[in-house]
């Protein structure tokens, strides 16, 4: 399954803003997708591994346990820093 991944902050430096990614068949949730990306791109392990990572689907924040079935686009939000 091909997914469009959208990255922000430090992850955008590593992957670019958008990346088409062929998700392994074994990945069922966003957490599985993150694990696959981490294995394939060890340089991103630090940023992807933060417990403060969040995700969005259709402009709604979702948890890492969210299923991948039917999705086309997932946005990756590393830990935020405003102010």
């Amino acid at each position: 399954m091909m997914l469009e991944l959208v990255f922000y902050g430090p992850l955008a430096d590593l992957f670019g803003r958008e990346k088409n990614y062929e998700v392994p068949d074994s990945a069922a949730t966003i957490a599985d997708l993150v694990a696959a990306l981490t294995r394939q791109f060890p340089d991103a392990a630090g940023a992807l591994g933060s417990e403060r990572m969040s995700f969005a689907v259709d402009d709604q924040i979702v948890q890492a346990s969210h299923g991948l079935n039917g999705l086309k686009r997932i946005e990756f939000f590393p830990p935020v820093s405003g102010g």
Partner: peptide, 18 residues
């Protein structure tokens, strides 16, 4: 500071830091 969706990168002579 810790919840709004911003990501801040500083540039210094030693490089860029998020």
């Amino acid at each position: 500071k810790a919840e709004a969706l911003f990501w801040k990168r500083e540039e210094t002579e030693t490089g860029q830091v998020w």
